[in-house]
Design a protein around this nucleic acid. Sequence first.
DNA 1: CAGTGGTCTAGACCACACT
DNA 2: GTGTGGTCTAGACCACTGC
Lengths: 260, 260
Amino acid sequence: MPSTLPLPELPSPDTGGPATPAFSPLYQQIKGLILQSLQAGEWKPGEVIPSEIELAARFRVSQGTVRKAIDELAAENLVVRRQGKGTFVATHAEQHVRYRFLKLVPDSGDRDSEGPASRDVLECRRVRATAEVARALALRSGDAVVQVRRVLAFGGVPTILEDLWLPGAAFRGLSAEQMAAYQGPTYALFELEFGVRMVRAEEKIRAIAADAAQAALLAVPEGTPLLSVERLAYTYNDVPMEFRRGVYRTDAHHYRNELS
Amino acid sequence: MPSTLPLPELPSPDTGGPATPAFSPLYQQIKGLILQSLQAGEWKPGEVIPSEIELAARFRVSQGTVRKAIDELAAENLVVRRQGKGTFVATHAEQHVRYRFLKLVPDSGDRDSEGPASRDVLECRRVRATAEVARALALRSGDAVVQVRRVLAFGGVPTILEDLWLPGAAFRGLSAEQMAAYQGPTYALFELEFGVRMVRAEEKIRAIAADAAQAALLAVPEGTPLLSVERLAYTYNDVPMEFRRGVYRTDAHHYRNELS
DNA sequence: CAGTGGTCTAGACCACACT
DNA sequence: GTGTGGTCTAGACCACTGC
């Protein structure tokens, strides 16, 4: 079957037209269709998706084409393949990839420490988006957002102080109790309770001096150098769904990054 | 051709043995062979490697198997595919991926600013490795290393102060003049002059306060919060070839990271 | 055992670059 | 046109999982 696809719902590339400005391989189109099902929640985080053979039949392409589509989705961590079992929708709740976005690790031992030992939710309220938050989350100034402030401690030492801003519409009902009670990654909570799966994120990192409030909450002298980490996290389709601003103590931890 | 391969120089997996502890797909073995040629310098950075068809003939496998091997090498940035032209050994000298490892970007505009506007090499001498440097570079304490200290400026503002430590054996003859004169990425210089290609790196990031010396060289008040960035860069085969410790001003720039 | 993903092949055809 | 990488297919077989 040539790349001039017989699929009904796809925008057919002009095979005989005067110009072929946008050529898209079949497997990319299949990837797009699978992505749509993922977004639509046809298969939820942690669940199996249909086998390659089933998907091939459904989309009327060969297994190899479906395979290549899934290969890319797996490379982007949207899906996880398990030989002999099937392909699963990725989730932040899994043991192996928990705290995938947390790059702060203890100086001694490169173990990821399995997340913070304690969490202290200082605040969780609905507020109106400031201009900055609105811009980050692609909302309008004044739209409702949920703001969470919390302190994460490792081994009894308060290490991270952060504010989270979430779109009010998608996170209606999020409470401080809920945030505090949930064991495991915050992003797993978001998947379970609000059906929002964070797929990728961007961080901007700076060095700053602790102000009085930060110093008090992190139990360091005012003026102590801290890492300022701004994160914008996205769901499917590059839709921003969380803006986060944190300050990290780096006297016993460091931010670890791999370049390749 | 089944995966019980007929290739002479490969360690044949025990097909009928009592145990098959290590099974390695054919394409992985081919990848390993290509990697060996890359390391051995059979094809140098920027050059084309043989076509898929040629490699398939050489290794006595199908083109598809070679393709999958090259796919992985391309995913690891060791090689770059160019449709219609061939597959090329990756290099830091290329226009498109220059300063791939430099994550510091100006706050305004996400342009990568095409590297530092000016470079000031303060020092370049052969010294004996301290315990720390020796450990990082997998040398013995006291082994010869080349130490380089320099200041990088963006738009006239000194922004990065860093020390580089390089194994003395591989970098014999590196001079301050050479470092200062070369236009373009330092890693491109290393490829050209010393045949050392950096393939990946790890960074550890902290916030520190500028000491007197750092403050003077970066033209900031003593005590200014700075980003401390420790980098260990590797060549082929996970051999560490550079240890770097830098301090970054983050008043007009930030360290940008993508999480996925 | 059957079902899943994983590997390997061989061949056809497409898109792109050079000449 | 020729040669390169890129796509797509169909079929065979391998490795892992669970019934």
